[in-house]
């Protein structure tokens, strides 16, 4: 079977050129890195790894009626701004302000539920506005036991386990660019979901890898997460 190539898909991660040589797998209408080498990446993920989830669907909604809209569509919402919750199907909802929510797709369904939310939204009189996030943000996943120590090198906000427990969201600056950092584990694996400006993803990828180097951090694929 011919291997998948990112250039054959309309939707490409801003980091696609950094994944040369990696084994790609299908993800919705695009591809995602399954693994970088032939070796088992489980130990790498547990220690310190960086994954590119930019091709996984995500979308935002904002407005006075948004909470009601999302509840009607079966979402469990965080009680306070700057909190996030995992849904039963693995999708994630982060509350970014009083009336703004960010929906992150699940690896389990390739983000299809969240992609459908973006496709089905319609403009009408109710104050609930779509915020397309697929082409504005890149989505990275930082995993392993050293996530707090890595972020401490890049970010002024205390993201240690005590100050930033699972379900916390921080909208701040890391490596001098704006980021949304969400502490939501991948199963048992400690993980920070990081969204940053898509055009700056190439820079930010290197900045994170540089900070991860002392913990023997490396890029990884999603195979061991599924």
């Amino acid at each position: 079977m011919a291997s998948l190539q990112a250039r054959n898909f309309n939707q490409r991660s801003p980091l696609a050129h950094r994944h040369v040589g990696a084994t790609l797998g299908p993800m919705g209408d695009s591809v995602i890195v399954a693994r970088y080498g032939q070796h088992d990446e489980k130990a790498q993920l547990q220690r310190c790894a960086l994954l590119d989830l930019s091709n996984l669907p995500r979308v935002g909604f904002r407005g006075a009626h948004t909470a009601e809209y999302l509840r009607q569509r079966g979402y469990q919402l965080p009680a306070q701004p700057n909190q996030a919750v995992v849904q039963a199907d693995g999708s994630r909802v982060a509350r970014l302000s009083q009336n703004e929510y960010l929906l992150l797709g699940s690896l389990l369904d390739g983000g299809s539920r969240i992609a459908l939310e973006e496709a089905q939204w319609q403009y009408d009189d109710t104050p609930n506005y779509l915020l397309p996030r697929q082409d504005s943000h890149a989505w990275l996943l930082l995993t392993g036991e050293h996530i707090s120590e890595v972020m401490a090198k890049l970010c002024g906000v205390d993201l240690s386990a005590q100050a930033f427990p699972p379900g916390s969201v921080a909208q701040t600056s890391a490596a001098r660019i704006n980021v949304i950092v969400i502490n939501l584990a991948e199963g048992d694996l400690p993980a920070l979901q990081i969204l940053c400006d898509r055009a700056s993803a190439d820079y930010f990828w290197d900045a994170l890898l540089d900070a991860m180097a002392e913990f023997a951090g490396a890029p990884a694929g999603i195979d061991e997460l599924l």
């Binding site: 701004p81 700057n82 302000s97 002024g156 906000v157 921080a170 909208q171 701040t172 600056s173």
Partner: peptide, 10 residues
């Protein structure tokens, strides 16, 4: 008021 204490550069 939304995000707590942050560096002024933000």
């Amino acid at each position: 008021p939304l995000n707590g204490p942050r560096n002024i550069s933000e």
